[in-house]
Design a protein around this nucleic acid. Structure first.
Length: 614
RNA sequence: GGCUCCGUAGCUUAAUGGAUAGAGCAUCUGACUACGGAUCAGAAGGUUAGAGGUUCGAGUCCUCUCGGAGUCACCA
């Protein structure tokens, strides 16, 4: 594949060297697409050379332009406006470029580089079904994995499943007390929702127990003695809830007992735990399948929660950690702008970060990845800063390749989602809703069989949902408007799919009418719309590289939209089948085909599939 | 209070330090006996939160201020 842009950059650097006698790094030469209102395809920014050349910007641009026109065969003409050097690329180049794209099934992707990266995403708790927040996480993790793969990495996709602890014990206690004997089958309910319902039931009953307790003499005594002057009764009991659950609650006692039995490997408890988690996993599998994602390796917290002790020993030996009189182990990160942090309790048990230290090391031993990406919401920014800093100080071999892909929380127009207020948007509900709406919108020109219609509706609905979420830069918190997320018009996934469907429809006609497109290379008279599309196609590999470098799929999402938009306009303004000449027709068909390939490839990086008709 | 992230049109958002800040939604007006109208074109909508600074050039980089969010547990 020809490398036009790097060639131009190098040629400019050589020109500057020869004309003005100054060395410049060719990678730093800036070449942009020429805005539509000027003639030209690419523009060289010459301002950085003005000082070096000691000449006026226009003069510098003129000289470099003349040099390029002379030395670079692809540069057909140039013009200079207000210090910008606009280059026109030869038609011949563009025609060859188009053929090269069509002959490269991997266009835009880089060859494998033999380097391994791990991406962790999703990582749910097992006490309730997946929700909208997980969806953003999963889409980011998945498309990031695809992007890294596209730039050559060998990617290992993992999640750590938080399958132990208080949360799942609540569901277990709840089911034993109020649901024993019932199963997802008997209740005709998706199995992860079955477990989630018992969790919700537990919380409801626990709340009732707390409210009853609040009116007892004992509770009123606590209120009187522990309330801060600034608190009213309601605020006090809100803040006191956790403490109450751990000290006075009957249900709380049952949960703690369950947790202790689990830790003691009590057979009945383990069996129940496995049963409940099994329900949840079956449900998750369905949701993951609907979302079109999968993992290469699952880690379970029940296997990893005790890890990290050896790393603590190492840290003590290396004097990265220190022990206090009570026996607890700490790390002092104050010189890096963080605080002191416990890594091992006085009783020798792990804390959260200890697990993560141990898990990181275990993963490195498992796969030897030089990079590890954690897709976790930005609530945990501080945690990951600290985690990475510690691993760096321990001189773990993978420490330089750690990255926290932090993303903003998903909020509703009404504010943050809250379990207690029942405003959490369930993943499965959302998926079936977008499918339903997409099914309603299918045209009579689309599929004829019901199975095909359902499949297309799935693709279109998921495209709407996924695109709505992935187009926003990860760092930004996002407002999820359910109505807009199922929109099929405007800057949406279905809009991009529709451009692909149009192209597909052209290709089918080419097939049907046995049109020979070989004469595309004889086309002359490229118009502005065609060139704009070619420039965009040429930009694709760079977009992937940038998106991967920045762990930012939204760049690809916006690129695909722009390309689709340009194509829709092209379709509207220019006759493809009824083109002026057979060469023009062949060329436009080939150009359309290339755009279809790029769109399909780009959307695939976002986890979005293209329908053949819709 | 310390640290981190965010602030662009009524709403949702885009813009490797480059030319007149670009879209979509909503509003209004147009375009199919034409390759698929889930489309296209046009109108209207902006002091890029504010003030300084660096630069030939700043939405973008630096400083301060204001507003919002998160975090600062021997929870996970």
């Amino acid at each position: 594949m020809m490398q036009l842009i790097p060639n131009l950059q190098k040629a400019v650097a050589t020109a500057v060297q020869q004309l003005f006698g100054v060395e410049t790094e060719w990678q730093k030469v800036q070449i942009n697409q020429t805005p539509a209102e000027f003639t030209g395809d690419y523009s060289v920014v010459v301002f950085p050379f003005v000082k070096l050349a000691k000449k006026a910007p226009d003069q510098v641009a003129q000289e470099i332009g003349a040099y390029l026109q002379e030395q670079v065969p692809e540069v057909m003409a140039f013009n200079v406006i207000k210090g910008f050097l606009n280059l026109e690329i030869s038609e011949q180049y563009w025609l060859q470029f188009l053929q090269a794209v069509l002959n490269d099934p991997q266009y835009g992707r880089q060859t494998p580089n033999g380097r391994k990266v791990m991406v962790e995403f999703s990582s749910p708790n097992t006490n309730k079904p997946l929700h909208l927040g997980h969806i953003r996480n999963i889409l980011l993790g998945w498309s990031c994995s695809q992007l890294l793969e596209a730039v050559g990495y060998d990617v290992v996709k993992v999640q750590i499943i938080n399958d132990r602890g208080v949360a799942i014990c609540k569901s277990m206690v709840s089911w034993l007390k109020w649901g024993a004997g019932k199963t997802p089958e008997s209740e005709q309910i998706k199995s992860d929702h079955f477990v989630g319902d018992y969790y919700v039931l537990f919380e409801r009953n626990s709340k009732a127990e707390y409210e009853t307790w609040q009116s007892t003499a004992e509770a009123q005594e606590f209120l009187a003695s522990k309330r801060k002057p600034s608190q009213n009764e309601k605020d006090f009991f809100k803040d006191y809830k956790n403490a109450w659950f751990n000290t006075h609650s009957q249900l709380g006692a049952e949960v703690r007992e369950m947790l202790l039995k689990w830790e003691a490997h009590d057979p009945d408890t383990i069996a129940l735990w496995k049963q409940m988690n099994g329900y949840v996993y079956a449900g998750f599998d369905q949701t993951y399948a609907d979302l079109g994602v999968h993992f290469d390796k699952l880690y379970y917290e029940s296997d990893t929660y005790l890890l990290g002790k050896d790393i603590v020993e190492d840290g003590l030996k290396q004097n990265v950690f220190f022990r206090k009189e009570d026996g607890s182990v700490w790390v002092d990160l104050t010189d890096a702008g963080f605080d002191q942090k416990v890594v091992l309790r006085a009783d020798g048990t792990s804390v959260y970060i200890t697990q993560d230290l141990g898990t990181a090391r275990m993963r490195f031993h498992d796969f030897g990845c030089e990079k590890m990406v954690y897709v976790v919401a930005d609530e945990q920014n501080y945690h990951f800063s600290v985690l990475f800093e510690i691993l760096k100080r321990l001189q773990e071999p993978y420490a330089a390749g750690l990255y926290h892909l932090s993303y903003g929380l998903v909020e509703l127009p009404t504010g943050r989602m809250k379990t207690r207020e029942g405003t959490v948007v369930d993943a499965d509900d959302l998926i079936s809703e977008v499918r339903r709406l997409a099914l309603e919108g299918l045209s009579e020109r689309g599929d004829t069989t019901e199975a095909a219609q359902l499949e297309t509706a799935h693709k279109v609905g998921m495209a709407a949902l996924k695109y709505f979420i992935i187009k926003v830069h990860p760092h930004k918190k996002m407002i999820f408007n359910p109505e807009e997320s199922v929109d099929l018009q405007g800057q949406t996934g279905p809009y991009i799919q529709y451009s692909y469907v149009r192209i597909n429809s052209l290709m089918q006609r080419v097939q049907r009418e046995q049109i020979d497109t070989a004469c595309a290379t004889d086309y002359t008279g490229l118009n502005a719309a065609e060139k704009e599309l070619l420039v965009a196609v040429q930009d694709y590999p760079d977009v992937i590289r940038q998106a991967a470098d920045n762990y930012d799929p939204s760049l690809v999402a916006n690129y695909c939209y722009n390309l689709a938009k340009n194509f829709h306009r092209f379709w509207h303004d220019v006759s493809i089948f009824n083109a002026e000449t057979p060469e023009a027709r062949a060329f436009r068909l080939e150009l359309s085909r290339a755009i279809g390939l790029v769109l399909k490839s780009g959307m695939r990086l976002l986890g979005i599939e293209m329908p053949e008709r819709m």
